[in-house]
Amino acid sequence: MTDLMTHKIRIATTSLAGCFGCHMSFLDIDERFFTLCEHVVFDRSPFTDIKHLGEHVDVGLIEGGLCNAENVSTLREFRDHVKILVAVGACAINGGIPAMRNHIPLKECLEESYLVAVGIDSPQIPNDPELPLLLDRVRPIHEVVKVDYFLPGCPPSAEVFWTFLTDLMAGREPQIPEAQIHFD
């Protein structure tokens, strides 16, 4: 399970319908990042700004659920290219805060945000063809692709990332201890 050139584990990361909080929490491993970089190399990720996945990626970390068509195609690209797909954080696992719109019809959500809310000038619902189309409901990623591991938390603490990654680097089956399991 290694990069062909460097014998390092290749990791890709992305944020779909998330807030980047999970990525920030990942960075909270602080100086342990140096140790990590001795063993892993980052592929597509906001850390590298690489836009598409390479051929042989070992681990894909997905933050955020699915709220639009682009989220779905990104998730599928990850599933097609990575060996181990990981749902990171509450939004990837159950839709999270964005899914709180799910019982309100999409039309009403858009009207509330862009037409009737206070303080709006030139009210109009954005419809530029560049904008990805919204899904009628926000979905967790396991409803669309197979997910291999789940790291709960909003966000998962740095310790959760570290447990998962050190288990992986040591070739152990990742196991999150009870004390590190949190849904908030």
Binding site: A99, H103, V147, P152, I181, F183
Partner: peptide, 22 residues
Amino acid sequence: LQATAYGLGMLDSHFPHFYPAR
């Protein structure tokens, strides 16, 4: 409910979500 889930080591919701209007 949350504490019970932690105690069981529950990491995900496994099933599709209903998102009911309550």
